[in-house]
Amino acid sequence: MNQEIYETLCDICGAESVFVQEPMSRHTTFRTGGPADVLVTPKAEQISRILDVCRKAGQPWTVIGNGSNLLVGDGGIRGVVLEIGRQIAEIEIDGTSITAGAGAMLSSIASKAAQAALTGMEFASGIPGSLGGAVVMNAGAYGGEMKNILKEVTVLTPEGELQTLSVEELDLSYRHSIVPERGYLVIQAVLELQPGKPEEIQAIMDDLKEKRVSKQPLEYPSAGSTFKRPEGYFAGKLIQDAGLRGFQVGGAQVSEKHCGFVINRDHATSADICNLMDQVSGIVFKKFGVRLEPEVKKIGEF
């Protein structure tokens, strides 16, 4: 990364928003990953200019949110990483509609929805991700998913144009949307909820929180459910039945509390986690003939 590009990014975002050789372990919930050449935390109106700089300089770019579904290689990420976070996290409520920036945390949106007596987003209250990432992968939990509450999404196209897409145009299905396929970058989304009773909404959120705390290894760094749910099966049950509870590679471990989670048990590297995932997938396939696919997205150099 040359000095001219660095200075240009500082001119666009301010030097306080540009980080050189930034450890990605600070930006992922796995707490692993090597350095990004440059990481920027832009405001929405700065993104198009940053991408233009990257194009003209022939620099690759990578967009991340809260890093809650990412495994970044120990070699880090070349080029420019755009972290869509607190700079793009506004939340506005109008009647039953909520308009929020892509960097807004799902937990924050769900909390504001509850305060406004709006129901429908309780399922997302404990998901440790941002709205943008949730749209990209149609995040879901406890029987709810984003496609049930999304109305429309504003994206930046690869050509630098803003487009508003309806929920139907996003082609949402299990852990899928057209956003990554088209190279779109989520800027904001509009959610449509329903009127509810604050005490009932809070009761549901409290119940789901209790389920998470009691059943998930929240005390260790992880990326949530590590594998997608195979059709007709549960990944955690297959892993458990394969005798892999507590299975460990280096500092990475199949959680003893919930076998669907791979955790950073003890200063794991991304290579440890990747190796563990590969071994678990291979053993489950050998025993049950079911191929586990990662829900976690791998980026960077491994």
Rank of each mutant, 00 (worst) to 15 (best):
V155K: 04
L71E: 02
D94Q: 10
Q115F: 13
N275V: 08
L238E: 04
C10Q: 12
E92G: 10
L162A: 02
C54R: 01
L185C: 15
V135T: 01
D171M: 14
K197L: 14
Y174A: 07
F234S: 09
R212I: 02
N69I: 02
A223F: 07
S97N: 08
Y142P: 01
A102K: 00
E200Y: 10
G34R: 06
V290T: 05
N148Y: 12
S225R: 10
A235M: 06
G143P: 09
T157C: 03
F285H: 14
G232M: 11
I299H: 11
S48I: 10
V290Y: 06
F30R: 02
L71P: 14
V179L: 00
E301Y: 11
V40M: 05
Q87H: 15
R229I: 12
G140I: 06
E293W: 07
T96H: 14
L106G: 05
N148G: 07
L9T: 04
P158T: 01
Q240G: 07
I47F: 03
N138Y: 12
T8G: 07
I204F: 03
M24R: 01
I93Y: 06
V213Y: 08
F247S: 02
V290S: 03
E192Q: 14
E231M: 09
V18L: 11
I149H: 08
G120N: 09
G232I: 05
L172G: 01
E90P: 01
D206L: 14
I5T: 14
P42C: 01
F261S: 00
P217M: 00
P221G: 00
A117F: 04
E152N: 15
E90N: 12
I299S: 10
Q240K: 15
G224E: 07
I109W: 02
E7F: 13
G183Y: 07
Q188G: 10
I47G: 04
Q87E: 15
F285V: 00
E169L: 04
D278E: 13
T154R: 11
G289H: 11
A36W: 06
K297P: 13
T41I: 12
F285S: 07
V63R: 08
V155H: 03
G132C: 12
I98V: 07
V155Q: 01
G246D: 00
E145G: 03
E256G: 15
T41E: 15
V72E: 05
Q188C: 14
V179N: 00
P35L: 01
R78V: 04
V20N: 00
V296R: 08
M105D: 00
A57V: 05
M205N: 01
Q240L: 15
T154M: 12
R265W: 15
T157N: 04
G160T: 04
A117H: 12
V254H: 00
I47W: 02
P198R: 10
E145C: 13
P60G: 06
A15C: 12
S17T: 08
S97Y: 11
T269I: 02
G300N: 05
F247K: 11
G73C: 11
G243E: 01
H176G: 03
L106I: 09
I187E: 06
L162T: 04
G246R: 02
V167A: 14
S107T: 11
D272H: 07
G67W: 08
D266F: 09
E168Y: 12
N275H: 15
E301G: 03
Q216P: 13
